[in-house]
Design a protein around this nucleic acid. Structure first.
Lengths: 191, 191
DNA sequence: TTTGTTCCTTGATAAAAGTCAAGCTTTTTT
DNA sequence: AAAAAAGCTTGACTTTTATCAAGGAACAAA
């Protein structure tokens, strides 16, 4: 089974590409292996790629002035990640992207994606539709963040992503939910 | 000055449309006037439109089980709003969109937008690029929500949108920032 | 397998923010 | 212009969550 199957299936959920379009798309993909704890994106450097995870797990986090980590994205197989602001605006990244496990990722350069989207209408449609879905989801997370208690946010996550909740370190999940590790530990213990 | 100038300029910031493409686009726009406190979207009904504000101000909010309001979007001139999840998935809305002032909005139906995006490549590009930008911004808001104190979030907003902060009721801003109205009042008083 | 790391838990305390209630101010309506 | 509605402020109190600190468990490396 090709390492491209996952990402091509992802596209196929939204649009249909011809074989030659698929070839064009696959040709811009760079395969990268990263070890656990390795950084894929670092502050100060432009986040050159959109990254797709074939195998493994990655988190994107922000390190604040007090040295505290705040996780924006927890990504596993069949997910995309990047420092989106940096990627789009070609400015230095503000976030770290760190492998939580040894991972296999597919990387596509900004310029290549733009060139293909200019040339291949269905591919442009794919990214449009997919980003719109991500956006809709993002609003849900915002609501959750501003309206729910720590405990509610935790159980919401566990119900939605039971496998991921057990797969990543607890302090990562805590920093994703905006809770201190100690508080998350207490939330879990009183159940 | 045509009421379409704003939205056409918005598009022109991302892509170039031919005159006939502009005509096609403008032809799907429905002009609607709403009075202050009127609802444009309501839970239970599908959010049929993407809405662009020509003049006025609107907020999108969620009403929780305890009857508390949580604002997801505060939108003024030259902004878009909708219940994005409902709009994309054609499911009943979960949010209210309420006019904060008498407003003039341009509405485009989901089916019409999709039809045009299928037919007009640059328009597809426009929505893709614009949504990607919104997405990058959305991550910033998430970071802010999970990592900053109420006070920091308030000042961040005031610095970014000083006009809007003075234009909308304080309880709306509070519910946007995830703060109780009383706490926001106290934050403002100690400055 | 023993020695570090890394991660998690628990207790005591402090700080931040929410809640309830009342009164005041501003805006809107009649 | 008066009455009503909507919005804002302040005080007293409670709840939630963070912080600091110490000890334990699990995992990884030598």
């Amino acid at each position: 089974m090709s390492k491209y199957k996952g990402i091509l299936d992802h596209i196929a959920r939204y649009v249909e590409l011809s074989d030659s379009e698929k070839e064009d798309f696959v040709s811009i993909l760079k395969t990268t292996r990263v070890k656990k704890r390795q950084f894929i994106v670092q502050p100060g450097f432009v986040s050159e790629y959109r990254n797709y995870i074939v195998e493994g797990a990655v988190r994107v986090y922000y390190l604040d002035d007090q040295g505290k980590e705040h996780t924006v994205i927890i990504a596993v197989e069949d997910w995309f990640f990047t420092d989106f602001y940096s990627y789009i605006h070609r400015t230095p990244a503000e976030y770290y992207a760190e492998a939580l496990e040894d991972s296999l990722i597919l990387q596509m350069k900004y310029e290549d994606v733009e060139e293909l989207c200019n040339r291949i209408h269905p591919l442009c449609q794919y990214f449009r539709l997919f980003t719109e879905r991500s956006m809709a989801y993002s609003y849900k997370r915002t609501i959750s963040n501003i309206s729910k208690t720590s405990e509610e946010r935790y159980w919401e996550y566990v119900n939605k992503y039971p496998q991921i909740a057990n797969r990543v370190p607890q302090y990562v999940l805590a920093s994703y939910l905006g809770i201190s590790p100690e508080s998350l530990s207490r939330i879990r213990s009183r159940s």
